[in-house]
């Protein structure tokens, strides 16, 4: 929740406050929940509304870079992985072998992996972080996330893809070491 809220406000600390306010609002407004969406989606709707309001208020007093949904979805993605150069016979194919990771039930779920994952998610640009947190973190549907963040399906997929590649790369350094040791 803090990850999603932080996309709209100036700092994770303010995001934390918004997340707490959300639970208060959830309990206060519970009578208004009509069961048309899932409870989770309804809670995230309250969260994004509170975060947006808070973000607007903050910007009036202290300007900061706000949620840049379109900007983050535009432009070429820098190729995150290693592919062979254009002049190579196998241009565009893997330059280094890609190894399968161990099954995610053993070492991959270690505390160290958890820390790396948290760090990777928190390091994502705000819009990517919000989309990854809602889709992969909270298992919300593509439609629900587009509605919540007011973005198109295609922008949502671009943000999700870029975010996922960054997260995979960040935990990949650790996971690849497990492969070597195994």
């Amino acid at each position: 929740m803090v990850r999603v809220a932080s996309a709209y406000v100036s700092s994770p600390e303010v995001g934390e406050e918004v997340a707490q306010d959300t639970w208060v609002a959830v309990l206060e407004q519970l009578d208004r929940f009509e069961g048309r969406s899932t409870l989770k989606t309804w809670i995230f709707r309250i969260l994004t509304n509170l975060a947006k309001t808070r973000g607007v208020r903050e910007r009036r007093s202290a300007p900061f870079s706000s949620l840049n949904l379109r900007g983050e979805a535009q432009g070429e993605v820098e190729p995150p992985e290693s592919f062979l150069d254009a002049d190579h016979r196998w241009s565009g194919h893997w330059a280094v072998p890609v190894h399968a990771w161990p099954a995610p039930d053993e070492q991959l779920l270690s505390a160290e992996m958890g820390e790396r994952l948290v760090h990777a998610l928190d390091a994502l640009p705000p819009a990517q972080r919000a989309v990854v947190a809602l889709r992969d973190g909270q298992s919300l549907s593509s439609r629900e996330v587009c509605d919540l963040l007011e973005i198109s399906e295609s922008n949502q997929r671009v943000l999700l893809h870029r975010g996922r590649l960054r997260v995979r790369r960040a935990i990949g350094e650790y996971a690849d070491r497990l492969v070597v040791r195994a």
């Binding site: 947190a133 995979r168 935990i171």
Partner: peptide, 20 residues
């Protein structure tokens, strides 16, 4: 390579889900 990469991506998504 691509098969392993897709599996890694799926694992990464599952780990994000488990964490959040």
């Amino acid at each position: 390579g691509c098969t392993a990469f897709l599996a890694q991506l799926r694992t990464s998504i599952a780990l994000t889900g488990a964490l959040d």
